[in-house]
């Protein structure tokens, strides 16, 4: 697997996949997509980069440990649910905030989005930590 072509292409491919995963995450509210599928794409990007550049390189590039990213995801999802405490609504009620931008368009921020970002982080963290663990094992043999 460790050919020159692959090693050259892998960083660009991984970057493109991460970008695409964010796109999929953000369009997920009303169209096909969402946090889970976006997270899987990002985790595959990390796995590909890991095969090409080595696991140590990936861990350095990620800065945070994948499990910590998963923890952040659980935290964000939980916070998204707890937001409704302040509007006297039950747990996990969807809350929306519409921001008018200067060019007249509208930016919709919501707790479902926050929840989805949380799911994205959980999936990226959990799946990439499994993938990296397996790849690390492959390298040391």
């Amino acid at each position: 697997m460790n050919t020159v072509i692959f090693r050259t292409v892998a960083p660009y491919l991984a970057a493109l996949m991460v970008l695409f995963s964010v796109f999929v995450l953000l369009r997920g509210h009303n169209e096909p997509g969402g946090g889970f599928i976006g997270g899987l794409i990002a985790a595959s990007a990390i796995a590909i980069y890991g095969i090409a550049a080595g696991v140590d390189e990936v861990r350095k590039a990620l800065v945070f440990h994948p499990i910590a990213v998963a923890g952040l995801g659980v935290f964000l999802a939980g916070i998204a649910g707890l937001m409704s405490l302040f509007v006297d609504a039950p747990f996990l009620k969807g809350l929306w905030l519409f921001l008018e931008l200067s060019d007249g368009s509208e930016l919709a921020l919501s707790t479902p989005l926050l929840f989805d970002i949380g799911v994205y982080c959980v999936v990226v963290g959990a799946i990439s930590s499994i993938a990296l663990a397996l790849e690390e094992d492959e390298e040391t043999r």
């Binding site: 959990a126 799946i127 499994i130 663990a133 094992d137």
Partner: peptide, 20 residues
């Protein structure tokens, strides 16, 4: 599917480790 996938991934790693 999501839950089954994550548990399958876990069991796969576990089996691999157990095999080693």
């Amino acid at each position: 599917i999501v839950i089954g996938f994550s548990l399958f991934a876990f069991l796969l790693v576990l089996t691999y480790r157990a095999y080693q």
